[in-house]
Amino acid sequence: MTSADPQSLKRRYDEVSPKYDQGAPDAMAIKLFWLTYEHLTWKPVEALLPKDGTAWRVLDAGGGGGKFGTRFAEAGHHVTVLDISPGMLDGARAQFAAKGLLDRVTFVEGNVAALELPDAAFDLVFCEGDPVSYCLDAYPRAVKELVRVAKPGAPVVLGVDNRYEAFSGYLKLGKPQEAFRTLHDGRTTCPYGLPVHAFTVRELERAVAEAGAELLEIFGKPVMFFDMLKAMAAAQGGTAEKPWDAWAAREEILALQEKLAHEGFAVLGQHFQVMARRKA
């Protein structure tokens, strides 16, 4: 098995860490896209958390700048933020400090494919974004590691790249040869130019089963987003003098995306979200 070179990952994320997750894009469609992405990511995870005030131990693997880790801490849970990049961990530390949450977090430098963490240590394992995709052909080992550190019966939530989206993206860019290669082997690149593995649904199903977890759902996020916005704008009948206000309609957009994400459109999502549980 091969995986992305850990030193390359570390260097690239150390480079981008000072500006990671800072500043919203000017384009309204992009701003709405990321609002929707975070909503679709967090809502099903939030529904898993205990409502009786019990504090869980949560692993935020590849936790980046602490965007989701701080949400767990704000809900009263203790978070271990693990990342391969010291620079990203510094960014997460600053986010937790700014919110007065440093007493609810532990920071660990590490690799998701070789976790130096004890078995069955966490009530919930969360690995969002590209950490598993960066493992390339070694992704089954990463999934096994993430399941290993979850308690029996505990949720394991993974975010990964979608092969169909990568394929269609290359076609839209006028790169049919790259599209054909990605269709066969799943190899593409992240926004920072590093190699990632883009998954099929069947690959994810196999990896989860082989890791000893029960698959609950695989859904897409966001789904057909920019095409959906165009269709909504046309349906709302905006004019040149009074264009449709997409931001004012954001709750309607979120509700429609939430519906689409869980109604069989997974392969049309920009990312996949995998909801699973370690078998008891």
Rank of each mutant, 00 (worst) to 15 (best):
T2M: 00
T2S: 09
T2I: 09
D5K: 02
P6A: 06
Q7G: 02
S8L: 15
L9A: 11
L9W: 01
D14F: 06
P18S: 11
D21Q: 12
Q22A: 13
A24F: 10
P25N: 08
P25K: 04
A27M: 09
A29I: 00
F33C: 05
W34I: 03
Y37S: 12
Y37H: 12
E38Q: 06
E38Y: 10
H39M: 01
H39T: 10
K43D: 13
V45R: 01
V45D: 00
A47H: 03
L48W: 05
L48Q: 14
L49D: 11
K51A: 14
G53F: 08
T54N: 11
T54H: 13
A55D: 05
A55M: 05
R57G: 02
R57M: 11
V58P: 05
L59V: 06
A61Y: 10
G63D: 01
R71P: 13
R71M: 15
A75H: 14
G76A: 07
H78W: 06
V79L: 01
T80C: 07
L82W: 09
L82P: 04
S85H: 04
P86M: 06
P86R: 07
P86N: 08
L89S: 03
A98Y: 03
K99W: 02
G100D: 08
L102D: 06
V108L: 07
E109F: 04
G110Y: 04
N111D: 15
A113E: 09
D119L: 01
F122N: 05
D123C: 08
C127S: 15
E128M: 15
E128P: 00
V132W: 03
Y134Q: 09
Y134R: 03
D137L: 13
D137M: 09
Y139S: 13
R141L: 15
V143H: 05
E145Q: 15
V149M: 00
P155H: 04
V157W: 10
L158G: 13
V160K: 10
V160W: 12
V160G: 08
D161E: 15
R163V: 07
A166E: 11
A166R: 12
F167A: 05
G169V: 11
L173F: 06
P176M: 04
R181N: 08
T182L: 08
G186I: 10
G186A: 10
G186M: 11
R187H: 12
T189H: 12
C190F: 03
P191M: 06
L194N: 14
L194M: 14
L194F: 11
P195S: 13
V196W: 02
F199G: 13
F199A: 14
F199M: 14
V201T: 10
R202E: 15
E203P: 02
E203S: 08
L204V: 04
R206T: 11
A209D: 12
E210C: 00
G212P: 08
E214W: 09
G220M: 12
G220F: 15
G220C: 14
M228G: 09
M228H: 09
L229Y: 05
L229V: 04
A231R: 08
A233N: 07
A233L: 04
A234I: 07
A235R: 10
T239H: 05
T239C: 10
K242E: 14
D245H: 09
E251Y: 04
E251W: 00
I253L: 15
L254P: 03
Q257P: 10
K259G: 06
L260Q: 05
F265D: 01
A266C: 11
A266G: 07
V267S: 14
V267T: 13
H271V: 01
V274G: 11
A276R: 12
K279F: 01
